[in-house]
């Protein structure tokens, strides 16, 4: 009797999520599969056209440009962000004087809303009045035209990304603080150098955190939209900043090709799913659970 009542209460308590899950996740997900097989615009009813959208996508040059841009961006910004974040977290974990201050400083940029971030960096990277190139000039470097040169527009976005790694720094820091000091001390007694300690004790101990940041990073970077949308209208210069989510958005709301956009959405979902599974699989041998964790 008790159990049955609890079960009923359970369903009752979970009800909002059942509804939310069904209406705002499951339904759109299923509907978008259907739409992806349709010619569909905002005003017209969906008309089934089979695999046409997918076939068209695979021969769509711009689709591949956005795939390539997004992949390059992810390949540059993920490692850059993760290495910077981990390095900063390790420095903070050394517990030198002023750690609280430094922690705040590194975290602040990640609080800046995306649109403000984009607007601010448009100003910093401006070709004529940009302060970054002015600073570079002071140390004798002729800075590139960050916003106008297709070779530098993606690196500009990577710089922005690295500036906002504060979140990841804190997550790493939490992980590092859970590494038992006894382990580090044991390594020291064995005469391990700083690098060896890091390589063989610290990194393996926080590997689950690294994996978590990697997966979150993949999901985030593949969807990159707001910052390039504000900074580089139309993915300029010469489509070097035209990312997957921007092309998807343009197809859906500018060209009214919602079926096409849905097909793109599903390909993105499958890519994220595959990459997440791949990361989990590849990491099996390298990620050490237990010990450092708190969950």
């Amino acid at each position: 009797m008790r159990i049955r009542k609890e079960r009923l209460t359970g369903y009752l308590f979970a009800m909002p999520w059942f509804i939310g899950f069904a209406v705002f996740l499951a339904y759109p997900l299923v509907a978008s599969i259907y739409f992806s097989f349709c010619d569909y615009s905002v005003l017209k009813k969906p008309v089934f056209i089979g695999l046409d959208n997918y076939r068209e996508l695979f021969s769509d040059e711009v689709f591949w440009i956005t795939v390539k841009n997004t992949a390059i961006y992810a390949a540059l910004s993920l490692p850059a962000g993760m290495v910077t974040a981990l390095a900063l977290a390790m420095l903070l974990n050394a517990k030198v004087p002023g750690t609280t201050f430094f922690r705040t400083v590194f975290f602040l940029p990640s609080l800046v809303p995306m649109v403000s971030l984009a607007v601010l960096w448009l100003w910093i990277l401006n070709g004529e009045h940009g302060i970054l190139n002015e600073v570079l000039r002071m140390v004798g470097i002729q800075g590139p035209n960050w916003l106008g040169d297709p070779a530098w527009s993606k690196p500009a976005l990577v710089v922005l990304g690295v500036w906002g790694v504060g979140n990841a720094v804190l997550i790493y820091l939490a992980g590092l603080q859970d590494v038992p000091t006894s382990l580090v001390e044991a390594a020291e007694l064995d005469g391990a150098s700083a690098w060896q300690k890091t390589r063989h004790v610290t990194i393996p101990m926080i590997s689950p955190v690294i994996l978590f940041n990697l997966i979150m990073g993949i999901i985030g970077t593949l969807q990159v939209f707001t910052v390039p949308y504000v900074m580089f209208p139309g993915g300029s210069p010469a489509r070097s900043t035209y990312f997957y989510a921007m092309y998807l958005f343009d197809n859906a709301f500018l060209y009214n090709k919602m079926g096409y956009a849905s097909a793109m959405g599903w390909i993105m979902f499958l890519a994220i799913f595959a990459l997440t599974m791949l990361s989990l699989k590849l990491s099996e041998r390298h990620v050490h659970y237990g010990g450092g964790g708190t969950a």
Binding site: R7, A14, F24, P28, S32, A245, A252, G265
Partner: peptide, 28 residues
């Protein structure tokens, strides 16, 4: 609370964190 399907639902919930917004954009 204990109810049937709880753990499966929880796993499904976690999995939805992988769903990118752009997939849901059009049907939503």
């Amino acid at each position: 609370l204990r109810w049937r399907g709880r753990d499966a639902m929880f796993a499904a919930t976690l999995a939805t964190m992988m769903v990118p917004f752009p997939v849901l954009m059009v049907p939503t």
